[in-house]
Simulated assay, not measured.
Amino acid sequence: MVLKCIAIDDEPLALRLINDYVSRFPALQMVNTFEDAISGAEFLKHNPVDLLFVDINMPDITGIDLVRSLDVKPMVIFTTAHKNFAYEGFELEALDYVLKPIDIKRFTKAVEKAVDYYKYRSKPAEEAAEESLYVYSEYRMVKIDLGTIEYIESMEDYIKIHITNEKTILTLMPMKKVLEKLPASKFQRIHRSYIVPVNKIRSIQNRKVQLTDVELPISESYNDFARNWAKQK
């Protein structure tokens, strides 16, 4: 498995550094580099690649506008000298963003995420869903091992994913969509506001589900789940 990459950056030094870093990874192949966004965008129209490293702030068009203009979007890692990452990058579902000056350790982390996600995306949907959940949070993609999910909570347009011994992850996604990404045999919706992992249910009583550290309500429309769970015990 080798990911074909290109890099677009109007700073020649930054471009050379990215090219040097990419050469250290056997899983990556740098196909081309560009010092202006227009040339890079034209190349991408006729030459699909797996991974794009692109600067956000460039004089002709921004990296964000470039990615938005692509009909077929590769995985994207934004590079930028500014800490205030644009919200539009989140909307484009960027894989990651790396601050300049680019550190090799941070670059490695971004590349490992790209390789991991590529493998995940290449698996059959059913097989991939059995292992992990990928969501966008804080302007980058986050991988969540299914076994670490305590429960998922709806917050209107957002959802909160409660993780064992880790920070809660907030992502812009409706409950229906996240439920489609999860294996039905392992996760069940019990309320318009809650999804729970079946194997972490300790008990169900008085239309309430007792998990490891929290008790959640079961709405009337999901009573069938409670009855089916009780029959299996």
Rank of each mutant, 00 (worst) to 15 (best):
T79K: 02
K105G: 00
P74T: 06
N84G: 09
V72N: 14
R68N: 13
E91C: 11
T62S: 15
K100Q: 07
A114I: 01
M75N: 06
A81M: 02
E112D: 13
T108S: 14
V72S: 14
A81W: 05
R106Y: 06
F107P: 06
L99M: 13
V76K: 01
P74W: 04
M58T: 11
Y87K: 08
G63K: 08
V76M: 03
L95Y: 03
L66A: 04
T79N: 07
I64A: 08
F78T: 03
I61K: 07
R106C: 07
I77E: 06
V54Y: 11
L99Q: 11
I102D: 07
V98F: 06
V54M: 06
T79I: 15
V98Q: 06
A110W: 02
K105W: 00
D71S: 09
P59S: 12
I56T: 04
K109W: 00
A86Y: 04
E91R: 14
L99Y: 05
E88I: 08
E93M: 13
V98A: 02
E91D: 15
V54R: 05
V72G: 00
A110R: 05
G63L: 10
E88G: 05
V98D: 04
D71H: 09
K83M: 12
F107Y: 12
E112N: 15
A110S: 15
T108L: 00
T80P: 14
V111K: 02
V98I: 15
V98M: 01
P59V: 11
T62K: 06
V76L: 02
V67K: 07
D65S: 13
I56F: 01
R68G: 01
A81R: 02
K113A: 10
K100S: 09
G63W: 01
I77D: 04
L99E: 07
Y87W: 02
E112P: 00
L70S: 10
I56V: 13
A94M: 06
E91V: 03
K113C: 07
V76E: 05
G63M: 07
V76W: 02
L70I: 08
T80I: 10
P74Q: 05
P101G: 01
K109D: 06
I61E: 05
L66N: 04
H82P: 07
V54C: 14
V72I: 11
Y87E: 12
D103S: 13
E88L: 04
A114V: 04
L92K: 08
D60T: 15
V111W: 02
T79Y: 01
A94T: 11
A110L: 09
P59A: 12
E88S: 10
A86I: 12
D65E: 15
D103T: 03
A114S: 05
S69A: 11
D103Y: 05
S69W: 09
I64Q: 06
L66F: 08
I64F: 09
A110H: 06
G89K: 12
L95M: 03
F90H: 10
M58A: 10
D96T: 08
I56P: 01
L99W: 10
